[in-house]
Amino acid sequence: MQVRDIMTTQLHTLDETATLHDAHGLSRDKGIRHIPVLDSKTGVFHSIVTQKALVTRVMKLANLYGAAELDEQEKRIPIEEVAVRDGDRISADQPLLEVAEYFLAHKHGCLPVVNTDGTLAGIVTSSDFVKLAIRLLKDGR
Rank of each mutant, 00 (worst) to 15 (best):
Q2G: 02
Q2V: 05
V3D: 07
D5I: 09
M7A: 01
L11H: 07
L11S: 00
D15N: 08
H24Q: 12
G25Y: 13
S27H: 09
S27R: 12
D29I: 06
G31K: 14
G31M: 13
I32T: 13
R33Q: 15
H34T: 00
H34R: 14
D39G: 13
T42L: 09
G43L: 06
V44L: 07
T50N: 08
T50S: 10
K52Y: 04
K52A: 12
V55I: 10
V55F: 00
T56Y: 00
M59Y: 01
K60P: 04
A62P: 02
Y65K: 00
E80G: 12
A83D: 10
D86K: 15
G87P: 10
R89A: 09
R89H: 02
A92F: 08
D93H: 02
E98M: 13
V99L: 04
Y102T: 08
F103S: 09
K107V: 05
H108G: 00
L111V: 14
L111T: 00
V113A: 07
A121V: 02
A121Q: 04
G122P: 10
G122K: 13
G122H: 10
I123C: 12
T125D: 14
S127T: 13
F129Q: 15
V130C: 04
K131G: 06
A133H: 13
K138Q: 15
K138I: 14
